[in-house]
């Protein structure tokens, strides 16, 4: 899953997973304003995002909504080369 890419930045897509793509073009700030409202809660759809990733030695672009139909465990961690 995820196509090989030139590396870009992570960004929320501005909606929950499985929602239709945004119609109007937004600048980064307005996306953030919008998604700040859409905090993640249990029992509710996760906020969708896309982000660059390292997978199998390659750089890929990964979008959470591409994983619809599968169980996903999303783990944030404080940083590479940390100890725990």
């Amino acid at each position: 899953m995820g196509e090989e890419i030139d590396v870009s930045c992570a960004r929320p897509t501005g909606g929950p997973v499985g929602s239709l793509p945004e119609k109007k073009v937004q600048d980064g700030a307005s996306i953030l304003r919008e998604v700040k409202k859409a905090m993640v809660k249990v029992g509710k759809k996760a906020a969708d995002f896309q982000a660059p990733a390292l997978h199998g030695g390659k750089f890929k672009q990964i979008k959470l909504s591409e994983y619809l139909g599968k169980w996903v465990v999303l783990c944030f961690y404080p940083g590479d080369f940390t100890f725990v």
């Binding site: 249990v42 759809k45 909504s65 996903v72 465990v73 783990c75 944030f76 404080p78």
Partner: peptide, 21 residues
């Protein structure tokens, strides 16, 4: 403040619904 994502873990079901955090 620290500029990092702290240790958060989310279980997301096949419908994209967050079941646990």
């Amino acid at each position: 403040e620290a500029g990092v994502d702290i240790r958060g873990r989310f279980i997301i079901d096949p419908d994209g619904v967050v079941q646990a955090m």
